[in-house]
Design a protein around this nucleic acid. Sequence first.
DNA 1: CCTTAACCGAGACGGTACGTCACGTCTTAGT
DNA 2: ACTAAGACGTGACGTACCGTCTCGGTTAAGG
Lengths: 201, 201, 201, 201
Amino acid sequence: MKENPQATAGATGRSQGARKSREIFDATLDLLADQGYDGLTVEGVALRAGVNKTTLYRHWPTKGALVRAALIGAGRLELDVPDTGSLRGDLEALVRQVVSLLTAPPASDVVVAALGAATRAPELADAAADFFADRLVREQAVFDRAAARGELPADVDPALVMDLLAGAVWLRVVLRRRPLEPDYPARAVAAVLHGTAPNAG
Amino acid sequence: MKENPQATAGATGRSQGARKSREIFDATLDLLADQGYDGLTVEGVALRAGVNKTTLYRHWPTKGALVRAALIGAGRLELDVPDTGSLRGDLEALVRQVVSLLTAPPASDVVVAALGAATRAPELADAAADFFADRLVREQAVFDRAAARGELPADVDPALVMDLLAGAVWLRVVLRRRPLEPDYPARAVAAVLHGTAPNAG
Amino acid sequence: MKENPQATAGATGRSQGARKSREIFDATLDLLADQGYDGLTVEGVALRAGVNKTTLYRHWPTKGALVRAALIGAGRLELDVPDTGSLRGDLEALVRQVVSLLTAPPASDVVVAALGAATRAPELADAAADFFADRLVREQAVFDRAAARGELPADVDPALVMDLLAGAVWLRVVLRRRPLEPDYPARAVAAVLHGTAPNAG
Amino acid sequence: MKENPQATAGATGRSQGARKSREIFDATLDLLADQGYDGLTVEGVALRAGVNKTTLYRHWPTKGALVRAALIGAGRLELDVPDTGSLRGDLEALVRQVVSLLTAPPASDVVVAALGAATRAPELADAAADFFADRLVREQAVFDRAAARGELPADVDPALVMDLLAGAVWLRVVLRRRPLEPDYPARAVAAVLHGTAPNAG
DNA sequence: CCTTAACCGAGACGGTACGTCACGTCTTAGT
DNA sequence: ACTAAGACGTGACGTACCGTCTCGGTTAAGG
């Protein structure tokens, strides 16, 4: 509608889009941790990243896509698979990883917010599913080693084991909101490995 | 200001505010199921319940409070504690309850949305924590009966067992987004009761 | 999406909407004069009037409707119909009114912008048509008095006369962009009253 | 950065830039007629003309300049000066030209939009002034012939006469939005030639 | 023939304004 | 006493064009 506003800016002379992406992702995750997924606004990200809102929409059509890209793009979710020499040790280490992922700020804020939001943002749900699928693939090594050591029957379902262990932590920390005793990982692993009820029918 | 007031307002011939509350809760839960927690708007509830927006804000200051009240007011979350005669049977029944709570629409939409939202809405987090605490109190009976039957050592932690079982279902259904095999409850219960690794160190 | 932003403002305690309307109309016309119709933005009006953009859209769905309401609401277009005692005098006075309407700032900016915009904004076109129709009704008195004085045949078409006179001024001032000699009104009126070509066939 | 450059750009095998110019002007005028001056966007022109936006800006820095160039470049505004043998006939023909210019689509849309926009786009105002000045120069011939025939006093001002006649049509058609009777041109010419008020003082 | 300048397409970007939605607050009336 | 009606300020949405800029590739002219 305007004829000739005032001959604005133009490009800033950036060297790469990569740097901008980094700043965008950082801003996204920071705000996600601060405000939660719903408090996260595209305008806020744009402001904090020093980028125009339009630019964000040009690359990521929805908030979910942006968050997903940020979660992936910033390698904050990369976890090592432990190798302690025993199944029990490996599993306890894995559980402790989960615990720290869900409780040690600042990463925990991001992770909890993102996983919580996965219940309603399909994009994030996909991201979460991918994340867990990928994790499972790598956790498989733990079970392979255990089987090689003869610690585990061949027909054990690693997915079930990890569901039980990681799910317990999520439920305890996020849903039940109860403090986690230091021996919780050991007890959980013990229960899953050896059972709790020697005599149950 | 209006040209045509047309015999406006007033109550519609109510007997009590109770009926209105019912309609409000129903509207809330319907919309929650339809649109998810975020798609749920106070204005939408007001419109659907035939009630003024102001009225809603008078009673429930936030969306979270309204949803909480609706979930409690309509007894959609009441679960029976099973008594099958064996610990295994009881636990499997409990797991199946959780599965159906998280997968059978429309209640599942409500529950998943609400529990997912608990990660950031403190009101809902409290409600969820209360819900699980209350459940645990009642699930205690299952473990008491099992102990009386001699199926279970006295030092077993019911909270841990339920964390493992219910957490596994949540992780599998909501986060991992993978289909749940029919024997999943049985396998999960077996793992927790008897363990998966007879020889693990 | 937000749960509970920060308990914002609410109404400011105004006494009447009428005062606000006045401020809105003033802001609209000021900006119209300053920036022209296209430079006029709803956000600009909102800012200057100390009113929220949403409020403007609530009342006037388009920019055209807003400008129209402002032009009507602020009585800046009310012109007196002269009565000098002679048809020539009355018509010259009318032409001079038109000249000043189109050339004397700041009103001229508003009027020219609005009439120019009438070519594409149907709302404004209607407003302009109404304006001219209304004017014609009142100018009729000039012709009635002239007929009563015997200065004019009964079959003269006042609309044609006013088309010629006012149209000439518009063409000269706005489209031809040429300066208007002081005797232009007199010459124009003389031409329309007595003709320019005594012998033309 | 791109995965698939796919033998992009370059010229399409044109012979001259002249053909492209033609397409650009056509696109401009078509869109001007369709959407009006304000609905006309540079991006739209680029899209329709199959030309990059950048290219347009390279040649015409503003929308006004583009429209102006298009109006001139496409010879849609060239009008013949009539020679019917009498002043009355010539003037009526001129008025009819104006009428058709302003009412016969599709040219009328372009012309009306452009002249209407002249009130605020200085570039267009200049173009309009030039157009009318040029027309006047050529209309002078009509008056010269009339003077030679003795139909007209020597001191008649052709500009005033054309102001009155063309202005009346503009006012009637564009601003007053009233239908134009078939005898309007004749009546307008008669009024300007012979006057309307034989006895006015 | 090869180089060089002109021109163009492609595309990213910062920026303004758009028109819309829902929020939560408030006032005025009405039952 | 409670409520309907409805206006408002506020924040954010997602979109459309603006006008600028850089990059890379094609074409035509001139040595």
